[in-house]
Simulated assay, not measured.
Amino acid sequence: MNIRRFPLTREISLFVLAYLYLPVFVLIAYSFNANRTATVWTHASLDWYVRILNNPSIRAATWNSLVLAISAATAATVIALLAALATRRAFPGRNASETILRLPLILPEIVVAVATLILFVAVGIELGLGAMILAHTVFCIPFAYLPIRARLDGMSGTYEEAAQDLYANRFRTFRRVTMPLLWPGVLAGFTLAFVTSLDDFLTSFFLSGPGTTTLPVYIFSAIRAGITPEINAISTVMLVISILLVSLSFALTRLRR
């Protein structure tokens, strides 16, 4: 088939990629700047990375972010796993159930954050780490659900049928057959949910309480006083962690054994 390409397709694509990623590379480069002014380069230095390691406020925010991300990702993965197993078979209302599970991906995050804040205040839930874990669990469910469901759709049901023919009950079949085959999808879903929770700002900003500041909220508060290489260093570390975890998730989804 002779399909005429749109003129300047390559040039436009390169421009869009440069527009999206060039600021990220600039941020990474200036995180090694020895000058306190973020936009004035003097010479390369690792002092800002040493400072963020020795800053107690940053360590506390990092701890809060890790506790929040691990708790929310674990709960969301368990719920997503149960939901994926439940929606594997056809039943009345299956399409509606899957739509509800994917709803957090469609709704604007600012709307979800404000609605969650109003709900928690109305029912008397104290704002803080517990409230953030509940909220993060909800919007992380679809990120964990999609890889697990994709893995389930690629699995043949003959393995489970063979296990049941050999007199294995449902629990034993799940533990010895289904879960080992499903494990790469579960790990990929957990990784995506963890990265999503770790990088979230809006929900954490609305629901955080005293002493529960996360890294994204800390960065937002710090840039009000001006952008420094310290902020660039924190952002670079978070960027590297996110890239590594997403790459791990992508590799796990391609795992076949």
Rank of each mutant, 00 (worst) to 15 (best):
I106C: 04
I28Q: 05
L248G: 09
P210C: 02
Y145G: 01
L85E: 10
P210F: 11
F120V: 03
A73K: 08
F15A: 13
L22C: 13
G124F: 03
T158D: 14
F143H: 15
R36K: 12
A96Q: 08
D165E: 10
R257C: 01
T236M: 13
T37G: 07
V177C: 06
T77E: 07
P216T: 05
A60E: 13
F143W: 13
F6M: 11
G93Q: 10
A80C: 07
V237P: 06
A61I: 05
R170E: 14
R224D: 12
V26T: 09
I219D: 03
P147E: 03
T214Y: 06
P147Y: 02
A73W: 09
V246G: 01
A150R: 02
L17G: 05
R224W: 06
R176C: 08
R36Y: 04
L85G: 08
I231W: 10
T137F: 09
I110L: 11
V26F: 14
I231T: 13
R88E: 14
L207K: 12
L22H: 04
F171C: 07
V240G: 03
I227H: 02
D200H: 12
I100L: 15
E126D: 11
V246R: 00
Y21T: 06
A122Y: 09
T42F: 03
N2T: 09
I241R: 01
L207W: 10
P142W: 09
C140K: 07
L105C: 02
F25Y: 11
T236F: 05
V195F: 05
E98A: 02
L244V: 15
F171H: 09
T137Q: 05
A150E: 06
A168D: 12
Y159S: 10
R175F: 09
W183F: 15
M155V: 04
T137C: 08
T39D: 11
I12F: 10
L117F: 15
A73D: 04
A29E: 04
L107N: 02
I133R: 10
F6W: 11
Y218S: 08
L129C: 02
L192R: 03
A115S: 14
L134C: 08
V186L: 12
I118T: 15
P108N: 05
I141W: 07
A72R: 09
R151H: 00
P216L: 06
L187P: 00
A131G: 14
I28C: 10
Y145H: 02
N232I: 05
L107D: 01
E230Y: 06
T253H: 00
L215K: 09
G226S: 10
T74Y: 03
A233N: 05
F91S: 03
W183S: 15
A18Q: 02
A188E: 00
S221I: 01
L146M: 14
A163D: 08
M132T: 07
D165R: 04
W41F: 12
V240S: 03
Y49L: 05
F190G: 13
N54V: 01
A34D: 10
Q164G: 07
R172P: 01
L101Q: 05
T196C: 08
M179P: 01
Y30C: 00
R256Y: 01
M132Q: 15
R149M: 10
A44T: 12
T74D: 02
G124S: 08
N232T: 04
L244M: 13
A96C: 03
I106L: 12
I106A: 14
L46H: 03
